[in-house]
Each structure stands twice: as C-alpha cells, then as structure tokens.
C-alpha cells in the first residue's frame, strides 16, 4: 500500500483552510531603549496549505526568530499568529502544549533524538506523550517510506546522521500535524544525505499534503520549495515561486547586497 493510499484512507476531515498559518504584523524586539534590537519588524505572511514554503536569509535576518514565533516556541513583542483558525499568540502553556501535540511537528538541525530510545521509540514519542496509540500499520508504512524500517530497534548512536534525521522526519510526520516546521534540516548533513532528507520532505508534501515550513540557507533545499520568502533585517524583502538552485542563489545575493 502506498503512502498516498494510506493517507487518503485515514485522512481526517479535509482542512477547510487555504492558508493554514497566518502571521499579522509580527514584531520581535530584544532588550530595551538604547540597547534594543529589532529582530523582526511588522512581518505579515500567509502559509498556504499543502505546500512547502522556505524561509531564507543571511544570518541576522531574523529567519530563525520568525520560525520560532510561527511555531509557537516564542512570543512576538507585537502582532498575532493564527494556526488553523486559532490565534496562538495569546495561548498559555497548557494550550500551547496541546497545540504541539496535534498541530505542529518539528525537525531540528541537530536531530534532537532521545539517545536512550530506539529509532522506533523515538518516532512514537509524540504519540506516547499524548497517550495515543498509532493507527495499525501507519507506523510501519512510515518507517518503510522513510527508509529506516530495518534499523528500527537501533539507538541513535548506532545510526548515521542521515538516518537519524530521517527518524526525526518520521517522528514529525507521525501525528500528521497541520504544519511541519523544519529548522535547517540539512545543516548537519553532507550533500548526498541532504538530498535524501529533502526528497523525503518533498514527498510528504506531495503525497500527504503535509504543509511544511522550512528555514534554510541552503539553495539546494530552497530549490525544492513551492514558495520562498526572503528575509533581511527583520522584514520580508522578496518572494519567489518555484526556482532552481541557481536562481535561488542569485536572489540570495541580491537580498544580501541590499
């Protein structure tokens, strides 16, 4: 059974949103008065459902800060963020916790796997935290698709970087979140393994309709996106649709030059 068939069979009610995630006038300021730093200035954007959106920018552009705020990991100094129609910027810790269980998935740069759990246990972690059991067969399908089914009982220390990241992707996909956030997912991988992981992310967008937001500085990664947002000095300065790596690179240089 292909991933697609499985997904269609078990898919929850189709989301009615075109834009599952929306940010309005989001600002982030660190420090006060003289020593204040504006990491984000009044950023507004919409993330389209079922698409891979990349956020790019030079260091200091605020891209990581933006993603943390979109994902509910951080609070903006001003502005609102809405996920699946619910405003998350005013939520308290309990509500955010529930949000993370059902609507948000993460892939980290440094994999962030728990070292004492096996690959399978790591993948199941979000569900066991929520106290739910995985749907029969879904786990196996996922492990198969991701390509670590034969290493499922190995610990992270026994897996290569690429394998670990694939476990992390499987973990993020398991509960089929509304939005999957990937923070420099290929930052710690070589080019070959990077491609594997990126293809995996692309596949999940195409076959599962998984909305994904990826922060990256890698033009190859961005080239896979449906839409790329460029940040500089805390503001969105450019937006392009599907591009090649070379075009992305050129756009980056243009943005950094400013």
């Amino acid at each position: 059974m292909s991933l697609l068939q499985f997904a269609r069979k078990e898919a929850p009610d189709a989301t009615p949103f075109d834009c599952i995630l929306a940010a309005v006038d989001v600002s982030k300021r660190y420090g006060e008065r003289d020593t204040a730093v504006d990491a984000l200035r009044s950023v507004s954007l919409e993330i389209e459902t079922g698409q891979l959106t990349a956020i790019m920018g030079p260091s200091g552009s605020g891209k990581s800060t933006l993603m943390h705020i979109l994902a509910g990991l951080d609070r903006p100094t001003a502005g609102t963020v809405t996920v699946a129609g619910v405003e998350i910027t005013g939520m308290n810790d309990n509500e955010l916790t529930r949000l993370r269980r059902e609507h948000i998935g993460f892939v980290f740069q440094f994999f962030n796997l728990l070292p004492m759990l096996t690959a399978e246990e790591n993948v199941l972690l979000p569900l066991s935290i929520a106290g739910r059991k995985p749907e029969r067969g879904w786990l196996d399908e996922l492990l198969e698709t991701v390509g670590i089914a034969d290493r499922r009982s190995h610990r992270p220390s026994e897996l290569s970087g690429g394998q670990q990241q694939r476990v992390a992707v499987a973990r993020a996909l398991l509960s089929r979140p509304s939005v999957l956030f990937a923070d420099e997912p290929t930052g710690n991988l070589d080019s070959h393994t990077s491609d594997e992981v990126l293809n995996l992310l692309r596949t999940s967008v195409d076959e599962l309709g998984q909305t994904t937001v990826m922060v990256t500085h890698d033009p190859h990664a961005a080239a896979l996106a449906d839409r790329i947002l460029f940040l500089a000095d805390g503001q969105i300065v450019k937006e392009v649709r599907e591009s090649t790596a070379a075009e992305v690179l050129a756009a980056m240089q243009e943005v950094s030059g400013r």
Binding site: L73, D93, N94, T97, R98, R100, R101, E102, I104, F106, F108, N112, L114, P115, L125, P126, I129, A130, R171
Partner: peptide, 13 residues
C-alpha cells in the same frame, strides 16, 4: 535540550 525537545513534541509540564 532533551527536556525541551520533549516539550516541543507536546509533553506538558
């Protein structure tokens, strides 16, 4: 980092 990761995965306090 381990504890924070669990929180991002939806573990409550």
């Amino acid at each position: 980092r381990e504890l924070a990761t669990m929180r991002t995965l939806g573990a409550s306090r």
